[in-house]
Amino acid sequence: MKIRMNVNGNWREDDVEPRTLLVHYLRDVAGLTGTHVGCETSICGACTVLLNQEAVKSCTVFAVQANGAQVTTIEGLAREGKLHPLQQSFWEEHGLQCGFCTPGMILVAHQLLCRNPHPTQEEIRKGLEGNLCRCTGYQHIVKAVQSAASKMSATEPVRAVAAAG
């Protein structure tokens, strides 16, 4: 089946089997391997991407369902070589170790800050409930989100990632 998708600002057209999961489409067809697969039951969140600016688990969406949509993956978050404040904060606060859950964590945190620019610690932890990390114990991730929140509110309004048309 032919589908058309805007991935990180670029439109592309591909022919896919209907059963192709969005995560496999992004990884194997679009070559964007920053999105990871960590479980098969929509629990771990490693495959989180933004679909029309909302965080979704791309292992639980068929690529054909994203026909015509805008998708942002971790590769599309930095702009013109400048890290997104969330990426910067994950780096500064040691919000990652093995890095496997990190793209999903950053994108779900992006979703959180878009909706709630000044979350409490509890709200951050709740916002991360769909993403598992086995390395960090979460505390530095929470710290990174806090730090990104203050960076983003200090320097710029929350920047929604909109794919260029």
């Binding site: 929509s42 965080a55 979704v56 688990k57 639980t60 969406v61 769909g130 993403n131």
Partner: peptide, 9 residues
């Protein structure tokens, strides 16, 4: 329900 990603979808 579920988590934010599940609730989005």
């Amino acid at each position: 329900i579920g988590d934010v990603q599940v609730r989005n979808r």
